[in-house]
Design a protein around this nucleic acid. Sequence first.
DNA 1: GTCACCTTAGAAG
DNA 2: CTTCTAAGGTGAC
Length: 167
Amino acid sequence: MKTALHELPVITDDGEFTARYNDDGLVELNFPPTRPRRSPKKTPPPAVPAKIRAWHRLTGAALALVLAGRPAKQLPPLVWAGKTEFQQAVWRELLKIRGGDTLSYGEIAKRIGRPKAVRAVGGACGANPIPVLVPCHRVLAANHKIGGFSGGLAWKKTLLTREGIAL
DNA sequence: GTCACCTTAGAAG
DNA sequence: CTTCTAAGGTGAC
């Protein structure tokens, strides 16, 4: 039986992120909209299961920590259903990165056994449904260039700076 | 099938 | 130094 997708706002000092959950955990996290939409503020949270509220609390705490440049204590279950093995391999590798560390796209490619799939790694990062918690921003280009970021380079720079990573 | 993409090492000018 | 090329995975068209 299909679970309704629950969409909940995550309030942070950097704006209102949007988290989506299904029955298995967190499936997606979005950056705050560039232009604050006149949101239907009075979204009557229709019976959000306690399970999901608990995950949401973890998400909020983890997000706040990471945005402050600190490692998250605990993450909610991350759901990557529908994604390819390759992408999941990349994201699993990203989750291993310790605070303050960075990797290059090439480095990740080697670690997942596809040393030449450098650009594919970039593609996988861009397809990452859960930015920040899955630290795609800690991936720099080979010569310490910042590289790109589909969610907006400004975020990447900000996050890196807060973690004390210089370019 | 073709193209563009969060890349990169290497070769040529 | 700069510019150009080729190569890998994936999704959009």
